[in-house]
Structures are given as C-alpha cells and as structure tokens.
Write a protein that binds this DNA or RNA. Sequence first.
DNA 1: AAAAAAG
Length: 539
Amino acid sequence: MIKFSDLNLDPKVLKAIIDTGYETPTPIQAGAIPPALEGRDVLGIAQTGTGKTASFTLPMITLLGRGRARARMPRSLVLAPTRELAAQVAENFDAYAKYTKLTKALLIGGTSFKEQDQLIDKGVDVLIATPGRLIDHFERGKLILSDVKIMVVDEADRMLDMGFIPDIERIFQMTPFTRQTLFFSATMAPEIERITNTFLSNPAKVEVARAATTGENIKQGVVMFEASSKARGEDEKRDLLIRLIDAEGDACSNAIIFCNRKSDVDVVAKALKKNGKNAEAIHGDLEQSHRTRTLDGFRDGSIRFLVASDVAARGLDIPAVTHVLNFDVPSHAEDYVHRIGRTGRAGRTGTAIMICSTRDEKNLADVERLVQNPIPRLDNPLSRATPPTTTSPVDDVDASREDRPRRSRTRGPRKAVPDVDTGADATAPVDVAAPVAEPVVAVIDMAPVMAEVAAPQPDAIVPDRQPRDAQQRDGGSRSDRPARGPDRTAERSSPERRERDTTPHRGRDHQRGGHDNVIGMGADTPEFIAKSFAERSTS
DNA sequence: AAAAAAG
C-alpha cells in the first residue's frame, strides 16, 4: 500500500499531512501527485469526494517550496467555479502549507477588493480565485500573471455548465504557456476535451471512477405530485415536502433541500421555519458573508436543514448528510447525481427523496435514463390523507388523475419497478440497487453526459496504453526534464513545445475510452473521505 | 427556465 511518505513530497507537507491524520493517499492522489511532482501536466477525471483537492495542493506546495513570492506576480493559480469551492481550496492550502512560508490570496467576488489588493501587492505564492474576480483584478492592472508556474483548473465541467469556459481560455492565455497545468473535471464533454487538447501538454491522465454513481448506499425515491389546482400548487408542494421530512422522523438528522429556483429556495426555507424547523437558505443572490455563515452553521450542526440552489450541489465538502430532498427534479440530469451525492458518502447510508410535479416528468425521465435505473415511486402522503376536491371542471380532470397510480401513465411499459404503493411500508424508499427484472429504457448514448458512469472495471487499475518510459522519451516533453531544472525555461520555449500546444489533434489518448489510468473507488472508499475537511483535521 | 460568477 502506497503511503504519502512514498510520494516525494516536501517534508513540511508530509508533516502537515500527518497532523491531519492521513496516511494513505486516495487513488486520485496516488495517481496525480507523482506526475505533478515531475512537472508534468495532469488531467484528472474525478469528482469531489475523491480527495481531489489535495491531489493538486500537495504537489503545488512542494513545487513552490523553494522559490519565493514577488509583488503582484503570483507563482501559481487555482481556479474554482464557485466562491465556496474556492474558499474550500484555500482552507486546504492553509492546512497543508502551515509549516511553510508560502502565502496565498483568495480572490472571490462578493468581498472587498481592498484586502485582496493588499495581499497581491505584498506578493503571494498562490492565488485561489473564481474566474470573474480574477479577471477583474487583472483588468485593473493590479495583477501580473506572467510568472505563473502552475495553474490548476478545478471542476472544469462545472465551469462549462456555468459558461466560464471563455474566461478560462482567456486566463490560460494570460499565463505563460510554459506553465504546468493541473486540470480536473468530472466528465470529458467535447468542449472540455477541446480545452485540454489546446492547453495541456502530454498530460498524465488519471481517472477515478465515481465514488457512488447513485450509490447502492443511497436509498432513492420519487413522489409524483399533481396540484389540485394551479392556485394551490405551490402551497401543496411545500406541504408535501414538510410531510416527507416529518415522515423520516429522527432518522433525518440533517438534510439539504434542493430547489431549482432561487425564489423557491427562499420561499421553502421560510415555510420550513414557519413550520418550526431549523432551516436556512443558501443561493447565489444572498450576500457572500451570509452564504459563508449559513454553510458554516450547517457544517457545525447549528443548522439542520439547508435549503439550497445548485450552488451547493457540487463540490462542497459538507459532512455526510442523512437526507437529500429534491424539491424539484433538476433540469440537468447530471445535477441529480451531484445533488444526491451529498448524502450516503463512503459507505454511509443516505436517503434521497424527490418531488416530481407534472411538468418535471420529462426531466425525471432524463434522470432515470442517466442513472440507468428507475427511481422507485413513493406514495404521495397528501393525496392519501386529503382526497382531492373537485370544485371546478378543470380541477376535476386533474383531481381524478391524481387518484390513480401515475406511473401507469408516466412510465409506460416500464413495469419492473418495485411496487411501493401497496405495502404498509410504502413510504420507505427502496434501494434501487435491488435487481430489476426489465431494463428501464433502450440503450441511449450517454457519452457526453457522464463518462464515469460507464467507467470500465471499477477497482481495477488499467495499465498505461503507452509505457511510461515511452512517454518520457517523447522528445522535449516536460516529463524528461527535472521538476525544477535550471534550463527549464529555455527548454519550455522550444518550438516543439509551442507546436504541441497548438496542434489540435495532438494526443489521441485524450479521447474517451483511451484513459491512462482508471482507478475505482467503489466500495473501497476510505471512511475519512466521507468526513468534511474540518472533521478530519480535528480527529 | 434557472443557476452560477463581476458589478
């Protein structure tokens, strides 16, 4: 078993790692750290919960160890899609760099420029930023990126979703092409592939299979919801949510409730509070200080219910929550996986319950296609307790429909789903890992959506297609030069290097299916991964 | 149709 001490990390970094209690690197760390320390570009295909952050912070600190910061010229740069994620990286950096003299600045929106400017002026080794604020600083001429040696792009697929890719390209172009790039994405969408082909040079590719795709340890269920009338719909849906939470009882010790719209986040949080529940809202329209406070409160347990937009769907290192409640079906199917991935982490059990209203049915079908499993239908506690009123002719149609099992209409030929409407235990979510007799849907090309769903052979290490020494012989590539060699700059400016940077079809092995390393976490996920960073540090 | 991020 490989240990951190085998990885050639700076002794000061090792000491900090020991303080956190870690001994063995996670698969993404074991795969990414050695090539990163060699100075190679790294393409990491992994989602959060796999130890991804440390897989770039640890080598970064080690590589930066010797130099020193110069005013306005940071030597490394980490880009994250959301402010919270950037703050989380900064927290990690502080923990692992505590025995070094390295300095950092966190450049995120929603906070004052003044403090950030002062840090930049003084000179920092590491810049951790969201794209917007970084570009803002750059345009004010306060920031020079020509000395960046290492650039990290975290959660690139999320950046893509959020329309940040042009910004990322701009930032790439603001930094020297001689930089070392560590690039992380959960999936390899074509656009991501294009970026990596353009801005990465002969990267070491490290892929980690999804920890829990929609894990067997997550019990899932969906409640079909049809309003008795348009006017009542909103209220009824919130009532339904409260009923579902109450039905879970004490087992639901903390939960994240996801809504698609920020306005719903606010309204739902208010409704839960009114119902006497300890709930707070978090979404992008709230003031940053408020967001931070709320998240901290949820982490330390002083807030029990976090009502959230997708700002909290991915990446956030939140201690395993017992429940995820989807107030809406996410409109991007892959967000479902991210959302429910906030629970049931690393072998713990979790429960994910979703409400699907009539207009969300198409989204539900998309989600089921993506996870390649039907989500068991749960009884709607409201429709059983309160027989639908039939006042107007319009409502009458809806109401009668509400009474009969919706799945016969919505799910067509898919009859193999466990029937949860009949048993006494009907409200208990059913483990979707239970064998299903009939396939849900015909095979549909899921390639662009989620590479790792189809990741081959979890838990297997697939050998490099290209022998390592062959890669290293690849003329003029960075891999054969010492990580901090004296002639590094000259070598990097070679025409060959430049050519590689711009040749579009370089690197066939970038293509999906041609992964260098595919490492599964699967059931072997170490328990500490389920813990938040703070939890780990204190244990 | 909405969320995130720069105001």
